[in-house]
Design a protein around this nucleic acid. Structure first.
Lengths: 265, 265
DNA sequence: GGATAACGTTCAGTTGACTGAACACCAGCG
DNA sequence: CGCTGGTGTTCAGTCAACTGAACGTTATCC
């Protein structure tokens, strides 16, 4: 109702935020997170984010006071407060706690590498990881982002969206990011798979993000109206993977998904 | 040097930050992280942080745009971007990666519950946890904070500070937070233990934070000049703990600490 | 060495963000 | 029904934050 139907011109310089300083401070944090080394100087940041040095300096002073950035000599890095805040976010998610509890007690999953992830635009963010067999550690850290088209859990989450949104995100000729020879290449290919996924109720990834690795995933029924879109996945080595194992895993993943989607049920 | 020893009078209006909007936005995030449920309304936040509703509304709009907070109807929660940023912080810490690698290969530690933590004022923040025996899961989540006086790793880290700073933080008659009957009560008691810790080179905690649980910890030599102050700890059940086991653990912890403090060495 | 470049910091002028009171809205209650 | 206590939103005036060109300082180079 309060939405202005006017297409706010967000081009040029007029982002028209109600608190530009905050928006720009967030951009500074993003720039630090996105940078290769995580260490940037004031001038770097000023150039990267596109705001004057003097303003950047003021922002950094405030951010430093809040422990959101650290300064080490002339270089700035992300601050420790972010660990606290990120942890507070995850700690509030009952789903993560329940995820751990379930995995530990499950008969099949307790011996696998299981992850819970969240949809964020055209990426998924990994929220937590359960390691059933400490021997094989496939590096993927909590908080990592991954394009949806490259992982089973991404496809499982996208498959639930309504067709119009999917079409908007992935036109038939859209070029998708590629990590291995088996990665999907176009929006058309992706959408064909999404149909399969909707039919069979789970998603499969066959060496599309990492050669030698396969992945199974399901979506968690969304709890409440505005909750995040969560998915679960199991990663396994292709060399040792068997379809029988796969169907057992899918069965337990769906059980866990159901339990996460219907708490106390 | 940037530490202001001056008790900044946050009263009235003169916080004198170079970018007040950022400072206040950070306070909003803190309030959300500190709240019991993690869900606060605009009015709650306005009252909590002590700024007018209209200003709070503007801040929240900007924070929401940056994904730093989520709005669910009338309630606000921390945003998913914080998970990304927190993870980016941890991902940049070589120490955390090396910590995992070492624990997996270690002969004693690989079967224990090991943590790496960081000193932050008079608290420690847990950065990562290695679980050697999945059976016993003592709940302590990444990002949690704990007063230094209540855990071995906190005492190990504090013990390294110079005497003047310690005296300032913990006067003899300072009252310390208490969690169990064995928790240290006063600054004097704490400082007596710190002397022991400096002599023997590691810290011990005997059911001071959790009854039935003991803890061993060492400090990591600070890499470079401005790096964070890191510590390592092993948690064990008092019922099964033996001094022999303890000395083996301390030996490996010190090895790991040395390796973390002297990379490529 | 001297010159150049890049860094972070300073400062006064001006633009734009913050305020506080009034508004519109909903739920509970006598 | 009309009131009360609560919510979040709007708006114009004022005060303060942002700017950009200047500075002082430190590294890099021939």
């Amino acid at each position: 109702m309060a939405d202005s139907p006017i297409p706010v011109s967000s081009d040029k310089s007029g982002t028209s935020s109600p608190a530009p300083a905050v928006t720009r401070a967030a951009a500074v944090l993003d720039a630090l997170a996105a940078s290769a080394t995580g260490r940037l100087t004031l001038s770097d940041l000023s150039r990267e984010v596109g705001i004057p040095k003097s303003s950047t300096s003021n922002l950094l002073l405030a951010l430093e006071e809040a422990r959101l950035v650290n300064r080490q000599g002339a270089e700035f890095t992300l601050g420790r407060k972010l660990v606290e805040l990120g942890a507070a976010y995850l700690g509030r998610m009952d789903e993560v706690q329940e995820f751990y509890r379930y995995c530990e007690q499950a008969s099949v999953l307790s011996r696998e590498t299981v992850r819970i992830a969240m949809l964020d635009g055209t990426n998924v963010i990994y929220l937590a990881r359960y390691e059933g067999h400490p021997a094989v550690r496939l590096t993927s850290n909590i908080g990592d982002k991954m394009p949806v088209s490259l992982c089973a859990v991404g496809k499982a989450l996208i498959a639930r969206l309504n067709v119009h949104d999917i079409e908007e995100m992935f036109p038939d000729d859209a070029e998708l990011p590629v990590l291995t020879p088996k990665s999907l290449r176009t929006g058309g290919e992706l959408k064909a798979q999404l149909r399969e996924i909707r039919e069979q109720g789970f998603a499969f990834e066959d060496e599309e993000s990492t050669t030698g690795v396969v992945c199974l995933a399901v979506a968690v029924p969304t709890r409440g109206a505005h909750g995040p879109s969560l998915g679960l996945s199991v990663t396994a080595l292709k060399a040792t993977y068997t379809p029988e194992q796969g169907s057992q895993i899918v069965k337990e993943l769906q059980e866990l998904a159901h339990s996460l989607g219907n708490p106390m049920g």
